[in-house]
Design a protein around this nucleic acid. Structure first.
Lengths: 191, 191
DNA sequence: AATGTATGTCAATGCGTGTTGACATACGGA
DNA sequence: TCCGTATGTCAACACGCATTGACATACATT
């Protein structure tokens, strides 16, 4: 009793793929699992998307919440910080972590994930940063976000995983602030 | 022409397993690959180690370079920082990143990886840290190391991946210094 | 030298995977 | 109403995987 709406089928598949790919990574996810979750036959995935890799590619961009954080009309760094550390934090909390997980989970998709990360996150901010140590500050900015996100949500590091969202936001903004004030000094500050 | 030295065989298997597990993670590594690298029959793995999971468990502790960083006779934080950011940096550079990769590569081994991470890294420092914000500082300390390591070695973030070791060490020590000076203030510092 | 055990070799098994093709059915246009 | 195409269903394939058991060989002990 097939009803003629392949678009709906495609949407269901993409939705299921986005959810499970972002949660489990690439190689730990099977097409049968996605198909079952979408209540669709497995064969239709290869038919409609052309294979697992293509489906992953579609799910990668579909599940990316970060573009909302980039506001080209304002100072991008500040907007990103404000939005990330504010209410959106818990909504987007997995976005970075999942990105890391997906990048790490399979070398086959590593380049793809990294490229998407750069295009949607780093590049928009890169042209706006200035100053002598702008590049380093930007890298350290992301480094801090990545570390905090992984420590909190993936590694469940004590002192960071169990605290409430506000406390974590404070920790995060403190580190971000430090990262953005970085400049190379004569000697490292830690003995 | 089997020669009677099963210990040697076990060592070769463990060495190969350590190398490839730490590089590729759990589920992306096959026992056949390990066996081929060690020039040993696949069946001996299950015989000697009792399965893939047990072999991974052995390789996990065997490949951990971090215990060297913990010196119980001195201030552990400072020793860890000094050793990590100094010459050992490039030797151990992958240790943290690989830990993330292995943690992410398979949910089956996530708990094991995390437990090992805590037992060998966090716990030894945890009892030594003091002050009101000691726990948060420790978490942020690791958070910074994780973020910098992943950004530099796994995500290849521009501004952090292509710089030389000394420059990266400076960035790292700067962030560590900031993390250890953290205390909750009235208002976040970043507008 | 004979024997039993430790060690290594090989094949087979069962399972899950992504992908493909043959077939069936419902729909839209003639 | 009839036909061609779009959509869905099902089975099978070829592959790689971890694991197991039967068999062969080298060694240590007697």
């Amino acid at each position: 009793m097939p009803m003629r709406n392949s678009d709906k089928t495609r949407e269901k598949l993409l939705a299921a793929a986005t959810e499970v790919f972002w949660e489990q990574g690439y190689s730990n996810t099977s097409l049968r699992q996605i198909a079952q979750m979408a209540d669709v036959d497995v064969a239709l995935i290869s038919r409609y998307f052309g294979g697992k890799l293509k489906l992953f590619e579609a799910a990668l961009t579909a599940g990316l919440y970060w573009p909302e954080l980039i506001d080209p009309d304002n100072d991008p760094i500040k907007v990103a910080i404000a939005k990330y550390t504010a209410s959106s934090s818990e909504d987007h909390k997995f976005s970075i972590t999942r990105m890391i997980v997906m990048n790490a989970s399979d070398p086959q998709v590593g380049d793809m994930v990294r490229q998407t990360l750069f295009d949607t996150l780093v590049a928009p901010l890169e042209s706006r940063i200035d100053g002598e140590h702008g590049a380093a500050q930007l890298a350290m900015f992301f480094s801090v976000i990545i570390g905090a996100s992984v420590a909190r949500h993936s590694l469940l590091m004590p002192g960071m995983a169990e605290v409430d969202a506000d406390t974590h936001a404070w920790q995060l903004r403190y580190l971000i602030d430090a990262a953005l004030q970085f400049e190379i000094s004569e000697e490292p500050k830690v003995p």
